[in-house]
Design a binder for these strands. Structure first.
Lengths: 259, 259
DNA sequence: ATCCATTTGTGCGTATGTATG
DNA sequence: CCATACATACGCACAAATGGA
């Protein structure tokens, strides 16, 4: 009894979820039912379920036939060491788009382009002066209509004069990586910086995240032989995305993993 | 205006933190001060600060001279595509230990070994039968005395007969990767599976995480030429760790990045 | 379209416990 | 022992969302 009540209730409910007594899509008892069965006030019942919301295990739905629902945990895989790396692996369109289709889901994305001042951290990664400007291609990526990830790609301004298509707001059919390669700016080396974080309010809004849902933040710097070409900042909705890397001899992996 | 009070207060405080008005180590106003300055009840003040705790921005400290403190955001980098991959890169000891020392911090780790039944998901990754058993080397990794990450590495049982040292509970000086290589089980290929998640209660306890702090979960499968040799499950305390991958031509990266 | 019932969302006041200096 | 600050818990009220009668 050293643990507070709300933690005990949270533990109880969590056990039911991870052992499969409650399955994705199932409803938890309503707050009033929890009050009765555990003999606590509504605030305490809410504190308990708030823990599970923060862990991404349940989702709250207001309204008459609402309630608290065990969340779906479907995952989408991003093959980080194949996409954009192996030239000619896919015939056209950009890497992410292909990935999603290959996994049998419906991708869609909205683009917009702005010209912004590079934050110091980003400028350093691109090897340009801080406060210099860059074109930013922003997109919200959806899978089956639901937001799945955000990507903002920063291109140094001088590069945009070389490749003015980067400034056009719409989609670029062959994908920007391929477009740049056609202009002599292929990217034979990439650096990925991956970390977990809580979303900013803006990110949470765009990704339609429940409070307490973490995100995976990936900063990918693309290098041509002579310079850093672009910096892509991708925010993956945490629990439903994973990033896969294959290192070393690709033949060996192919032997044991079928994609 | 349409936003609830506690969100407005949270936004206000968050702005002060991200703009640097409040710097890491600084104290927020106490709950009673927040009640006064924003004219709300204590519950509302707590709801507001709870948002920031969930975002990993602040830490609550009880006691006389406690309060709510803006968290340090120092990050530790794990070079995923160098550690354990480039043979002979470091003279001895295991990959993580070297990484931390190279970044000027004090690493330490506690080991324990158990024999457990492989969960279905892990068994599949190792290409062995579900419910077969495996040796698990568990460790808590600390940086300057504070827990930084957890790592559980699973070795199929038949492998342990080949390399019985794996079952010894203490540290293995040259590192397990090197030990296995000495027995003809080098790992020329690795697969990493990276995602963001909220910690289980056990993980939160071991890593001494504040409620609401996300983690980075990395599953690394190591392959010899003939089989999957091991599965390492690493839980990085989210906000203070990042994982770095270098893909493609390493010469190019070296030109632009100094480590 | 209206009203009602149910369920979660926000907010207040209060009381008591626990940790720390 | 006390003062301060956060931690837990109760009870209450009203708002907002949703679906059915």
């Amino acid at each position: 009894m050293t643990l507070p009540k709300y933690r005990n209730i949270a533990d109880d409910l969590r056990t039911q979820i991870v052992t499969g007594v409650l399955r994705p899509g199932d409803r938890l008892p309503t707050e009033t039912q929890l009050m009765d069965t555990f003999g606590v006030s509504r605030n305490t019942a809410r504190a308990a379920t708030a823990v599970l919301v923060n862990e991404g295990l349940i989702e709250r739905v207001p309204g008459r036939s609402g309630g608290m629902e065990v969340r779906e945990q479907l995952t989408l895989t991003f093959h980080a060491s194949e996409a954009e790396v192996i030239p000619g692996l896919w015939p056209e369109s950009d890497a992410w788009f292909n990935e999603v289709q290959r996994q049998g889901q419906q991708p869609s994305q909205d683009f917009s382009v702005t010209i912004d001042t590079l934050p110091a951290e980003y400028a350093e990664r691109l090897g340009v002066e801080a406060d210099s400007s860059a074109a930013v291609r922003r997109c919200v990526r959806r899978v089956n209509g639901r937001p799945s990830s955000l990507q903002n790609t920063w291109y140094p301004m001088d590069l945009c004069q070389q490749v003015p298509e980067l400034l056009q707001p719409g989609d670029i059919k062959q994908g920007t990586t391929r477009l740049l390669a056609e202009r002599g700016l292929s990217q034979p080396a990439l650096e990925d910086d991956v970390s977990a974080a809580m979303p900013t309010p803006e990110e949470a809004r765009l990704l339609e995240l429940q409070p307490g849902t973490p995100v995976l933040r990936m900063l990918r710097t693309g290098f041509s032989r002579d310079r850093a070409v672009r910096l892509s900042v991708t925010i993956f909705s945490g629990p439903i995305n994973r990033v896969l890397y294959h290192l070393g001899d690709p033949e060996i992996i192919r032997k044991f993993r079928s994609h």
